[in-house]
Each structure stands twice: as structure tokens, then as C-alpha cells.
Design a protein around this nucleic acid. Structure first.
Lengths: 163, 163
DNA sequence: TCAAGATTGATGCAGCTGCATTTAGTAGGC
DNA sequence: GCCTACTAAATGCAGCTGCATCAATCTTGA
């Protein structure tokens, strides 16, 4: 069971870890400089804003964002504290609730997309041709442990979820 | 300044974030199941074990691992608490110190490499041919914000640093 | 020689994560 | 109806991260 990975695989692993961390840091840093909250907030706001009614069950949000339950719970807390979302009771299921994005929340999501998209362009787009970006996608997808595909189209218009 | 990135670049960004997080999780999970400490500990032990004298200044460790100063300081605390390293005073510079890996530390590093390398093979190696792994390296390197190259050779023999 | 500035390492604080547990409500079987 | 099993969400605790700051020491230059 030992010394199995090839040097190539190991090198790919190292780069995957290093480069992701560098690029993520750079993007988060750019957002912070713009006075914006962390990326996770953006992801949540984006999901909420995409919901046809503007509201979602925490459970759904959790599935969309691929983060654990407690994490969702606390993220919602923070959004609500900042007035970016509100909790609504769920009459069909009294255990549950709905989370609805506010106008402030929608505004912030849009403003963040400006800074966020600029950061993606700066730290990814400008360093890779479209063809190479596609190649990278293809290779990365093969590593994705059967993680559902992300349609490029869905990300293109209004924002991109991370994680 | 808005809506700049191509859909290809955005898709690459999303996958970079998602896949890295999945793969890292999977590897960390495997290590945890084996009863081992987190990857960061491994990285530190590896750097220390590679030092010709078995000891390093925290500042050097910091530079090697590309983590912030306070993070190094606390990581060393934990290693020392667990008997994996010891602090030694530095006579040339009384502000500073040396950190030396213990035999226990060396043993742990070696044992961890068994589990770690198996995890790399399982989650990366087995999903990519060597040629594709190299392609992936090439593409990722272009995103690396002038981060120093990692020689494949240095990683091959005894372990691979993350981050 | 001595003050100003840089460097080394530690630490208090706040926020976030994971884990386990708790609380509350639902649903199914009998 | 009532007991059990399940699901939705919240929360207490520990550990880790980032940020700012601190104390101690070293270096430099006038």
C-alpha cells in the first residue's frame, strides 16, 4: 500500500493545493479591499436571488452550496444580522423556515459580482486562453469525485458559486 | 470593469475551487481515519526532517511552508506539546530559537507518508494518467502568481508538502 | 554610543469550522 | 391515539485562522 503515487500525480496534487490557495486568497483579498464580505456570503446571496420566489429552505441552500447543515444555519444568522435576508416561518412544516433575500441583499450581490468577476478575470481569465481554461476544466472534472457538473451557462450570467 | 471573465474562465475558477476542496477533504478524511493529525503537521514534520541538522528557525519554516508567522508559532506549539519537536535556544540571536524534530516526530512523518501517499494515489493518481497529470501541472502553474516552482524530484522520495 | 527602525516570536481577540448534541416537529405503524 | 423513527434547524464546545499588537533583541547610521 506504500509509495504508490507517481511523481506526476504527486506534483499535480501539490499544485492543486498551492495554486488554489493562492488564487482563492488573491480573490478574497480583492473582495476585502473593495469592502465586501467573504465569498461564502456571495454564494448564499446568489442562490437566494436565483430562487424564483426569492426564498429557499435552509435545507435547499445547504444542498446547493454543498456545505454542512450547521454551517448554513450560521451563515443565515449572519446574513439576517446584516439585513441581507430575513427568516420567514414555514406553515407547511413548523420545524422549518424560509429564508428570503432582501433588496439590500440583492443589491449587495450585484455589487459584489462586479468586484468578484473582475477578480476572476484578473487572477484566472487573464492568465489562460479560453481553450486552456476548457482543458483545465476537463482535467479537474476528472478528479471531481462524481460531483455534479456545473453548467457553464448557469454561471455566466450573474455570478459564480465557489466550493 | 464589469462582466469581464469569459464563461470558460469562470468555469475553470469554479472547478478549481470545488475540486480542490473535494480532494483535500477526501485526503484529510483518509488521514483522520488512519488516526493521524492534519496535513499541516505533516508538512512541518517533513520540512524539519529534511533540514540537514534536523532543526530550523521558525522563520525558515514559515518561508518554506508559505504560512503566516503566527500560524507557524502555534503549529510549533502543538508539535512540541505532542513531543514531535523540541524548542532549542538560539545562541547567535537571542530573539530567535531553533526547532528540532524528535525521533517520535520522524517516525510519525514516515508513517503518515504511508497513508498520505496512498490517499494521493487514490484521489489523484488513479484518476489521471501521468501525461494528464503533467498537463494539469502545466495549466495550474500558469495560474500560480509567480509562486516558486516545486521540483517534482524533491517531492517524490519522501513526501509532499501541501499549500 | 545611542536612538530609530527592523526583525523574531508570542499572544489576546474575534470569527469561522467541525463535531456532537439538543430541541422541535413530522410521519408511519400498530 | 401513541410509540418509534426520522428530519429541520440551532447550539455548546474545541480547535484553527487572521489581525493587530506586544516584548525582546538586533542592526544601522549619525
Amino acid at each position: 500500500m506504500k509509495r504508490k503515487p507517481s511523481t506526476e500525480a504527486t506534483a499535480a496534487w501539490i499544485r492543486l493545493m498551492r495554486v488554489q490557495s493562492r488564487v482563492l486568497d488573491a480573490v478574497e483579498q480583492d473582495l476585502k479591499k473593495g469592502g465586501f464580505p467573504p465569498l461564502a456570503w456571495y454564494d448564499a446571496l446568489l442562490e437566494l436571488s436565483r430562487a424564483p420566489t426569492g426564498e429557499m429552505r435552509p435545507v435547499e441552500l445547504e444542498k446547493q452550496m454543498l456545505i454542512p447543515q450547521y454551517s448554513t444555519s450560521r451563515l443565515i444568522d449572519r446574513l439576517v444580522d446584516e439585513g441581507l435576508a430575513v427568516r420567514r416561518e414555514c406553515k407547511m412544516d413548523k420545524r422549518g423556515q424560509f429564508v428570503e433575500i432582501t433588496e439590500t441583499g440583492r443589491d449587495l450581490q450585484k455589487k459584489m459580482w462586479g468586484a468578484y468577476s473582475a477578480a476572476i478575470e484578473k487572477h484566472v481569465g487573464s492568465k489562460l486562453s479560453d481553450a486552456d481554461a476548457l482543458k483545465l476544466c476537463g482535467l479537474l472534472d476528472r478528479l471531481g469525485c462524481s460531483c455534479g457538473e456545473v453548467k457553464a451557462a448557469s454561471a455566466a450570467k450573474e455570478g459564480a458559486p465557489a466550493r
